[in-house]
Design a protein around this nucleic acid. Structure first.
Lengths: 202, 202
DNA sequence: GAGTCAGTTAACCAAATGGTTAAAAAGAAT
DNA sequence: ATTCTTTTTAACCATTTGGTTAACTGACTC
């Protein structure tokens, strides 16, 4: 039955996302994924040949989610400060919905750096990059912003946007124990953009 | 023989640091740690009862390395801008020596958040925190710096300092393919401090 | 209503893995 | 030299784990 099949497949994907994000490829157990999906382990292998195969699908999915905001930013034709506001907003929205993304990806890329190559080339990040680097350089030359390496500016924006989600448990324990970090993160996009713009504008 | 024993123990620790940092607790294999240390697996268990025990020691070691800069910063009695320069320098120095620290810790804290509690309380971070928060608040009130939540300012500084090391493989592939990222990171501390100070100063 | 086929399961298997045992080396101690 | 303790190893063990097999189910076809 087609409907039933799709339902099962989706329940597998949902379970796999949860377990892989929480425990990583090495720590995840097929049995636990099957249990979480409410199915038999053999059925899990019926739909996804191997743990590796299932993982790859989940990982690629996650990588796309994390990369799209950057792609969008690099291809964005808006004025620079607006672009900065845009990427901050997009990243915060995405990460608020999928807070586990940063750690999941960073972790798996660390254990097997070759994962980046396989997938990253698909996305056309590198194309749009040149344009944005030029835009930043032009803003420097025209005296709109202070001198800064364009690549490092981008890195700074991403650092400020992504790291708090990756380090959330520690930040919560150390810095935001008394306040609602959820609320803080939800409204942080604007403040990050302001922080960056304030730093570079003349 | 005492000397030989210590030598073996140290070779185990060196190996464990490498393997755990690379593969995490779940992905690391006792056999691989033994091989890397150049010893028998039984001998590994002779010195460290269990994988968990060995891991805990390595993890605590790493956590201290990562926390000390923050502790130092929070307790630092210097003037605010100087303090910011100091923490940036310390973090970059530490992470340049142990670049794997951020991912290792973030990863293991994600899979088991309770790890923070066990160790973090030992460090007296929370004590000094109040002082620095006040210092920042005072700087805001006296009009020395723009209005900013002190906790978020600290989070921003750490984000800018730590994230590039955590995301290095991806950043290298996407942003710094043509340049020497090692060199960039080695000189980045100052630029991060400038970036932050530029953003908050009036 | 027999046959077919996708979906599902219980039982099973081989390899990997953390950990143990018993005995051999290798030093100290006497 | 002999004993005693510490260090080291090869062989072994129990459990976990990814993956497979063969049988069952239930809908749909003819």
């Amino acid at each position: 039955m087609d409907k039933k099949s799709l339902e099962t497949q989706e329940s597998i994907l949902i379970a796999a996302r949860i377990i892989f994000a929480q425990k990583g490829l090495a720590g995840a157990r097929m049995q636990e994924i099957a249990d979480t999906a409410g199915i038999n382990k053999a059925l899990l292998h019926y739909y996804y040949k191997s743990k590796e195969k299932l993982f790859e699908q989940i990982f690629e999915e996650a990588l796309v989610k994390i990369m799209r905001p950057l792609s969008t930013f690099l291809a964005d034709d808006s004025e620079l400060f607006q672009k900065i506001r845009n990427i901050c907003n997009i990243y915060h929205k995405v990460l608020f919905e999928y807070p586990f993304l940063p750690n999941f990806i960073l972790n798996e890329v660390t254990t097997d750096p070759s994962r980046i190559f396989n997938i990253m080339t698909k996305e056309d990040v590198l194309e749009a990059k040149g344009k944005t680097l030029q835009q930043i350089n032009k803003a420097v030359q025209s005296g709109k912003i202070r001198a800064i390496d364009p690549q490092e500016l981008i890195l700074n924006i991403i650092s400020l946007s992504v790291f708090p989600f990756a380090a959330r448990p520690m930040a919560e324990e150390l810095l935001f124990k008394d306040v609602d970090m959820d609320e803080m993160l939800q409204t942080r996009a604007e403040r990050v953009a302001d922080f960056v713009i304030q730093s570079i504008k003349i």
